[in-house]
């Protein structure tokens, strides 16, 4: 029997690991560091995972533009050295739609959270999926409103506690990957901060997919979700996430009841369908003879012959 280690005690003899190399620091706005994320937050892991997926997908970083709404996860684009719109709560996908239509050559990535995209932005989420517009959405689902101090969200598990659910959450949560799949997205996956390799692979596939890609990553918020739900430390939270995880292929014979407390991970959709901005380009070619005009705001004269 090994004594359980009190996680708050630091063993003096413990040899601190050397600081890991940070190969992705080149993509960050170093002048904005340190960031605002809490120790143990999953956002850092996910940023790393994103860059791994991006490099694997051979996406040119210079061509990436990011859009986000409001919340902890929506602060991510502000630390990344690319064009970024940090917009209003829940509306990131509508800004991203305008940006992508205006310049379909950009690789537009949306960082969002469970409150941002599933609650206040739920309508924009299902319509962006329905249009199959070529956006890659990384949804960091931590089951809580972190930035405002721990209120329950539409994905908070039944029975979990939050500052607005002091007697436990009575509502049934949304399953985001399943929701977005039903709405028409062409690539949908769910992973957690524990399965970074799989998540990176899905981000790679999502970036390559010509259509609406939704990668939900279940993440830990030790500060609010953990503290209110008897999982104060990041390790405890990640243990809980790991133990709750079940692969989608193993769920076929399981009832809804059996799956109630599980996090189903894997790829939910991987298909191809006509893409929204492609359709607009085709319409433009038929009526205008060319793809849609880029950077029209900077033009002093418009091609009169074409008009």
């Amino acid at each position: 029997m090994v004594d359980e280690i009190d996680e708050y005690t630091i063993d003096d003899d413990f040899e601190k690991p050397k600081r890991a190399k940070a190969p992705f620091i080149k993509y960050l706005r170093e002048d904005r560091l340190p960031h605002i994320f809490c120790p143990g937050c999953g956002n850092g892991t996910i940023i790393n995972t994103f860059f791994k997926g991006m490099e694997e997908a051979n996406i040119d970083f210079e061509n990436v533009a990011m859009v986000s709404g409001i919340g902890c996860s929506s602060r991510i684009p502000g630390y990344i050295k690319c064009d970024s719109l940090h917009t209003t709560h829940g509306r990131a996908l509508s800004f991203a739609t305008g940006l992508k239509v205006s310049n379909p050559d950009l690789d537009v990535v949306v960082f969002t959270g469970d409150g941002d995209c599933a609650s206040i932005g739920g309508n924009h989420l299902i319509h962006a999926a329905r249009r199959n517009i070529n956006l890659t959405v990384i949804c960091i689902n931590n089951n809580i409103y972190g930035m405002t101090g721990g209120q329950i969200s539409p994905t908070s598990p039944k029975g979990s506690y939050g500052s607005t659910a002091p007697y436990g959450n009575r509502d049934k949560p949304f399953h985001l990957a399943e929701l977005v799949a039903a709405a028409g997205a062409t690539y949908v996956a769910r992973w957690t901060t524990v399965q970074v390799e799989s998540a990176a692979k899905s981000i790679e596939k999502g970036l390559k997919n010509k259509g609406f890609s939704f990668i939900e990553i279940v993440s830990q918020c030790p500060t609010y979700f953990g503290r209110k739900n008897k999982m104060k430390t990041p390790v405890k939270m990640m243990d809980h996430i790991k133990n709750s995880t079940i692969y989608i292929n193993n769920t076929k014979l399981m009832s809804e009841h059996e799956l109630a407390d599980k996090i189903v991970v894997g790829e939910f959709v991987d298909k191809s369908a006509p893409e929204f901005t492609d359709n607009l380009q085709e319409l433009s070619k038929e009526n205008y003879g060319d793809k849609t005009l880029r950077r029209s705001a900077f033009l002093k004269n418009f091609d009169e012959n074409k008009e």
């Binding site: 800004f95 991203a96 739609t97 305008g98 924009h124 005009l293 950077r295 029209s296």
Partner: peptide, 26 residues
């Protein structure tokens, strides 16, 4: 004229899309 028309899901997103398109250079 090489332009794009998008019917959005509501006026909230219409305004968002217009802002996004403006930063896209349109």
């Amino acid at each position: 004229y090489g332009g794009s028309f998008v019917q959005m899901e509501d006026e909230i997103s219409s305004m968002g899309a217009v802002i996004g398109a403006s930063w896209g250079g349109s």
